[in-house]
Amino acid sequence: MESGGAIYTQAGSSVDMTRSEEDSLVDGPLISADALHAAIRREFHSVPTSCHAILLSVLHVAYVVLSVCVAVLCVLKLGQEEACASILGSVRGDSAVVFGKAALWVLVLVFTRCAQYHHSRARNRGYLRFYRSTSTLKQLPLAVHSAGNVMLLVVMAARLPVDVHTYVLIGVLALELLVALPCLIYYTVKVMIFNTKRAAPDVSQEEHSHNFNVASLPTETGFREGSCLEEVVEKQADLIEYLKQHNSLLSRRLLNLTAQH
């Protein structure tokens, strides 16, 4: 009986210790949801690729204008042979256009890699909808310029007459500009809107909308009939990765705010 009483005494003491720890946590300073959301909102990181897209657009327009001038004045030789020789030296006019096209393609490749890096960071921070809405858009300029390079190689290898060769070359460059430039402008607008809104991550937005709308439909985290299974699995993986980082951030913020109170 004495041993049984000791066991009950130890169990009661352990329960009391657990309750005292829980009471100390409950009686501690409460942190408002507004303060926590404000602390998280300060962690917003903008995507800096809009400036890069604007600079690339300006360079593309400048390249096309200079290429048209070189093609008309130096390839067609409209009385400007001396000026072309003094500027280009021993380089032919069409060769200068091709060299410029290769340099522009390298810049587009660097921009695409840079955009992919910053967009992947935004995805890891929980902005999945923004990442998906721009995943194809940021790849389009590189695809357009690569297709333009192929067309340019075909024109160079066709051995057309000089006049026809020059006009086809100008047409290829103009078509490439008309397709790539709107893509860059639209991409720039989407990134600037994203940076201006400074919205919370997708998970926080879904939780916020669910709290204010009880009758709202559940989010598309799980599998639904008619939905793409691969897309759902990918989205769930992104959400898990984000929630790991989100929990770590919440832990640090809770400790800091508790220490301040």
Rank of each mutant, 00 (worst) to 15 (best):
Y242S: 05
E220A: 15
R252C: 06
S248C: 11
T221I: 11
E220S: 13
E225K: 10
R224I: 11
S251N: 09
E225T: 10
G222Q: 05
L243G: 01
L249H: 04
E220M: 10
A237E: 14
F223W: 04
K235L: 05
R252M: 06
V232D: 01
E225L: 13
H246C: 14
Q245F: 11
G226N: 05
P218E: 13
R224D: 03
L250Q: 03
H246R: 12
V232I: 02
G222C: 06
I240N: 00
Y242G: 08
V232W: 02
Y242A: 04
E234D: 15
N247P: 02
L249Q: 13
E231W: 04
E230F: 00
D238G: 15
A237I: 09
E231F: 03
T221N: 15
N247Y: 14
E234P: 00
R252V: 12
E241I: 11
L243Q: 06
L243R: 02
L243F: 08
Y242V: 07
I240M: 03
Q245G: 14
F223Q: 07
A237G: 09
P218K: 08
E241V: 10
G222H: 10
H246Q: 11
E231H: 02
E234V: 06
L239K: 04
S227F: 01
G226D: 05
L249N: 14
G222S: 11
T219P: 09
K244W: 00
P218A: 10
I240K: 03
Q236H: 04
A237S: 12
S251Y: 08
E230Y: 05
L239N: 07
N247R: 15
